[in-house]
Nucleic acid binder design. Sequence first.
DNA 1: AAAATTGTTGAAAACGATTTCAAAATATAA
DNA 2: TTATATTTTGAAATCGTTTTCAACAATTTT
Lengths: 326, 326
Amino acid sequence: MTIKEIARLAGVSNSAVSRYMNRGSLSDDKREKIKKVIEETNYIPSSYARAMRTRKSNQIGVIVPKINSESVSRVVSGISKVLNEAGYNFLLADTDRSLEKELEYLEVFRQGQIDGVIFMATIVTKKHIEHLRELQKPLVLVGQNIPEFACVYHDDYMAAYQMTKTLLDTKCKRFAYIGVTEKDVAAGKSRKEGMLRAAREHDLKEEDIVMAISDFTMESGRTAMRELLQQAPDIDGVFCATDSIAIGAMDYLKEIHRRIPKDVKICGIGDKKVSRLITPKLTTVHYYYKTSGIEAANMLLDRIQTEEQPTKHTMLGYELRIQDTI
Amino acid sequence: MTIKEIARLAGVSNSAVSRYMNRGSLSDDKREKIKKVIEETNYIPSSYARAMRTRKSNQIGVIVPKINSESVSRVVSGISKVLNEAGYNFLLADTDRSLEKELEYLEVFRQGQIDGVIFMATIVTKKHIEHLRELQKPLVLVGQNIPEFACVYHDDYMAAYQMTKTLLDTKCKRFAYIGVTEKDVAAGKSRKEGMLRAAREHDLKEEDIVMAISDFTMESGRTAMRELLQQAPDIDGVFCATDSIAIGAMDYLKEIHRRIPKDVKICGIGDKKVSRLITPKLTTVHYYYKTSGIEAANMLLDRIQTEEQPTKHTMLGYELRIQDTI
DNA sequence: AAAATTGTTGAAAACGATTTCAAAATATAA
DNA sequence: TTATATTTTGAAATCGTTTTCAACAATTTT
């Protein structure tokens, strides 16, 4: 069934049918006729043809580092909510934390039938910046603050500062930090700097702090904890850059029968669901992941609908969740 | 930049350029010329035009009940892997466990620029069947066994049977079951029936078993456990249809200081990552979620590429993970 | 009643690729 | 060398919409 066929059956022109579909001006008489024919034939316009003619696909590309991650899926569910309500679909690209794949997907989306892109960034290299510039489509970054592009992110510096401060206020003697690579500016650099500020305010020098770099998994948090304890067996306070790391670290501490929080205090960032289900419940920082997805999607729709938008930056706050590990 | 423009610059015809892009037969002479022009101009063919002409978008629709769920994201990561390697993108639709939304998305995908659909089903109503029939596109179901359509699913009946049998073999006296709605045939009906078979073999009658229906969240597992204990305070063995339910139930048991597994034994199905991180580690059944995603995507690609495929059904096995809760 | 404004209409031209078809060029066989 | 088979080639048709434009009809203003 094509528009032409409908037009023939209804005894009107192509354009009349097209106007009917798109709420153009049309006499009631024809409107009725067309309506009847369309209902009888179950006509569905070809979205291929429409997309080609209008250069709009109503599809958004979303790039995420790891779909199998709670923070990511919370962001995605926010994005999903907004886009669906606005009549958009989205293509989800999971990069499994591979920088090359991120670049590949940016290229796929550049070439593809995509009206705009939401990119959940982690490590942003020069190459990333280049690709993002070349994209030539409306774009919003989530999770990192890159002045040149529209962004939605959390206040990692202050969150880490406050959480660390709260931990140090409990008077722990030997403080440790497990972070992630500083190439990830938000989760690595900013959180470390926030932590360092709190440490300085407690008269700790950087060399007094036992530090390790981990990746985003529980397993590596576990390993990092073990290694730190080899360096400094007297650790009694640990701030972890993410909840996963903290949970892995706790697992090891429990295994070697250190009592939490009595022997060692520990806290993280992210407020994962399981933080409240493990024993003891992890002290952490709540991040508004779903909200950041909602914000990002709305921002993108804005940019798609009205051209010449100034680059907007939205920084979301956070909330300390003091529970049982400090 | 259009194909026409390239043709003009290279001094050849439209068709020559099209052939160049699609590996048609072409003299080396022209091939060179065209290559040069394309490189100079950074020409990218319009995927809109191509999709319209070929009626292929290289896009797959994927409908999932809840993206923010470990089992789902494991399936999705399997799907993602296969589709990307095959040069397909996918549109992810999260229904948040709403049956209406599932139907809506099926309709969106029916009308949309989609070459095939993977549907992670939970409750399959008559309406679902109708919509699936009307889809008129290659389709694979994941998680449920519907004879009429191609499916990939786990052996829920045997998994529940074996897990329950193992639990009952530890000689618990008062056995309880927390399941999900039987409208969900795989997770509700089959697992219950498997459990009942094991119970029968241990000379338990259905009325001897304390049962509750929960949904898929930890919270409701927790509530169900509390309610069951009001009915029967002497429960010393619980089989839960999912790990989330089991983890919620454990949380309550710990709160009221029942020792696991000494006072109460408990197990689930799904082998969630956190099952190994809580204390004690949950005894559960490993499901090959990622593999089922891989299988489903491969099956779909088969169906897209060769028409007139017979409906295939793939049932995946399972693996008992005996840990510390029984 | 004439002039100016507004609203409806359909033919035809896009949109940008692929595909068909017959002609032309080339390679192979007799 | 001629006859035959094969490969290259480009003009034109096609995919199914939306949009433009000029014509016409209906309304409102003078």
